[in-house]
Design a binder for these strands. Sequence first.
DNA 1: TTGGATATGATATAACATATCATCCTTTCG
DNA 2: CGAAAGGATGATATGTTATATCATATCCAA
Lengths: 154, 154
Amino acid sequence: MSADIDQIIKRSQEVCASTGNKLTEKRKNVLTVLLASTIPLSAYDIVDKYKAQFQESLPVMSVYRMLDFLIQEKLVHKLETAGQYMSCAHITCNHQHETPQFLICDRCGSVKEIGIKKHIIEDLERSIQSTGFALAHQQLELHGVCKQCQAISK
Amino acid sequence: MSADIDQIIKRSQEVCASTGNKLTEKRKNVLTVLLASTIPLSAYDIVDKYKAQFQESLPVMSVYRMLDFLIQEKLVHKLETAGQYMSCAHITCNHQHETPQFLICDRCGSVKEIGIKKHIIEDLERSIQSTGFALAHQQLELHGVCKQCQAISK
DNA sequence: TTGGATATGATATAACATATCATCCTTTCG
DNA sequence: CGAAAGGATGATATGTTATATCATATCCAA
Ligand SMILES: [Zn+2]
Ligand SMILES: [Zn+2]
Ligand SMILES: [Zn+2]
Ligand SMILES: [Zn+2]
């Protein structure tokens, strides 16, 4: 485990402690698998990687439960448009977690999590205000092509 | 079939003709099923409704193909976050189809399709410009609670 | 130490989606 | 007209994501 991941795990334990929950060994391992991946993973992907990385088999049911937990602790995000999961890019940031916005490359599968400008969300809210609709999640998933893949295709 | 749906079907046939394609009987029926629904439907939902409405069984494989066709003609949209399909709310509008924005009620499942303000998309694009990411679909799916459901919970 | 709460395992099944090959239908052109 | 070609649909199998439910294990406090 890289020092980087080590530090993120440590911070994650603090986050869980602060909500009165525990980052168990297996939850920690699942998070580690996600942290080590450059692309988001499905629950079934995690089962495979977990087995390779820890020489231990984990039922997919358990992975889903651990993902639910990690999402609740805001350590992991679910990409709804892909059915995949990725670790939060801002675990070690101390500031409040902003509305996440994901840039999903449809060519290589990489995802970049960026904070969305507050005024854009506000504009968006204003734009739908007339319909009486109350926004909930406020998570945006934008598909496209990343910088690297654009360079390759040239 | 209501006069309203009748008219939309007629316009849909014109749309297909303009692209050199045909709105076959079964494609038309699938579109009719979607037009008659107040909530989006999965491909399997469509199989069931089709059977009830037309006393004819349609393989789900065929439904997926017809949905692909209808989406290509922009007569139907796919909600990526739900794995469901709905007819476009603007088939009979003559103007160019804008970037669709969907307001999905997580309580009752209803979905409202509204055109997104151009300047918001532009802001969004500017906001991600520094990352070098090139936006593709530009379809936003926003989850929340609709006006009616808010009223009920009061 | 024991009982309740939390976490995990095991099994089954639901729900959404695609791959592939076969058959049918329509259009076209000799 | 009749055969060839292309498009549309059917049939079958399987892949992928997710949930339901009951059993077992682990932890912690009384
Ligand atoms: Zn995050
Ligand atoms: Zn890429
Ligand atoms: Zn539309
Ligand atoms: Zn509602």
